[in-house]
Design a protein around this nucleic acid. Structure first.
Lengths: 206, 206
DNA sequence: GTCTATAGCGCGATAGAC
DNA sequence: GTCTATCGCGCTATAGAC
């Protein structure tokens, strides 16, 4: 065994544990998620999980950090040099895609915030606020340039997040009320079209 | 002690327990909420709580049932004989008020759905689906009468719920990103105005 | 109806052999 | 690195005195 092989195995096991943890945390919530269940889903004995991640809290923190990183990435289309209508449409489409493709990640994040954000409250009022401030300045720049109607950029983001993430976080409710077992591709498409129409109209871009 | 007095005491204690439970379930989630914490917040010994509600699950079910009843009530403005613009505006305003005044209730419901709705899945695909079907027929009636633009009524509801309830469920996030400790009256007003503008525009009622 | 004390159990975490 | 066995804690729920 070379050092490189050992490192590869560590990375492989860590990845499997992180994926299993994201799923179990999403389905049960932090407290009800047992390390035994996560280990079983990752195909490892429970003691091995504690070898790679000393505590449940440390494992959870790693899961959350990964999710935040992806969450921030989805806002890449919001750039000063972009066209507001195209940028907002692309942003919404990306958020809906994320809800469809990564519902577990969205749910873990939602559960964290829902119960007071104990793990990431410093980040919310720290680097994530700074990140959002920057994105809001982009919107304000578009408004100042007369490219779109005057709206409160922060509430615009809050409402876009809510309207897109609800199709991941509350997929069970939406499916049940649609008389289905799961959400289908057409449901996400209808959601994307409706959210886009509402946002563009509110921004005077329809 | 007359029988009436005893019944009054039972109702008083049950109410105090239910209010405490709603709060603790909202703050910690079902699993992390201990019956000891609920009893302490209600000002009772733990054993007394189990005297009034035999199991934690039974107490939780009662909390959820009460929340659903209030949730259904908020849709009262959606009536066939109402004016679409006034009805939707009133509905959204009521939902925002509910988020401001009953954030705990909204969070308990959100947490229930988020983790797969184990307690109310039958209701979601049963009487709640029938209730929503009725409300959707009202919207479809308005569309058929040419009173508003053609939209998918179910997705319209999903998005209104998401955009209004996010100010209760994710209040911690919104406050932190606004650089505040809590949401203020003005924040809810801004939210109401923005959601209303978006919905009315999407429905051709602006 | 109220309260103290505790039974019973599941979970996080670790020791220690391999 | 891996795994079995187990410790210790905190929780739900109840027994039984008052």
């Amino acid at each position: 065994m070379t050092k490189r092989t050992i490192g590869a195995k560590r990375r492989l096991n860590e990845t499997r544990i992180l994926e299993a943890a994201e799923r179990v945390f999403a389905e049960r919530g932090y407290s009800a998620a047992s390390t035994a269940a996560i280990a079983a889903m990752a195909g490892l004995p429970k003691a091995n999980l504690h070898y790679y991640f000393r505590t449940k809290q440390a494992l959870y923190r790693r899961v959350i950090e990964n999710i935040i990183a992806k969450w921030v990435e989805t806002s890449d289309p919001i750039r000063t040099d972009a066209d507001p209508k195209a940028a907002l449409s692309s942003y919404i489409a990306g958020k809906i895609d994320y809800s469809r493709l990564h519902p577990h990640a969205s749910k873990v994040f939602a559960s964290e915030i829902l119960h007071g954000a104990p793990t990431i409250s410093e980040r919310l009022s720290g680097d994530l606020k700074i990140w959002l401030d920057g994105k809001c300045r982009v919107i304000e720049g578009w408004i100042a340039a007369g490219k779109m109607a005057r709206v409160d950029p922060r509430h615009l983001f809050f409402i876009i997040w809510a309207a897109t993430q609800t199709y991941a976080d509350f997929d069970v409710q939406a499916a049940a009320l649609l008389g289905q077992r799961n959400l289908r591709a057409g449901d996400y498409q209808a959601a994307r079209e409706m959210v886009t129409a509402m946002v563009l109209a509110a921004c005077g871009l329809a």
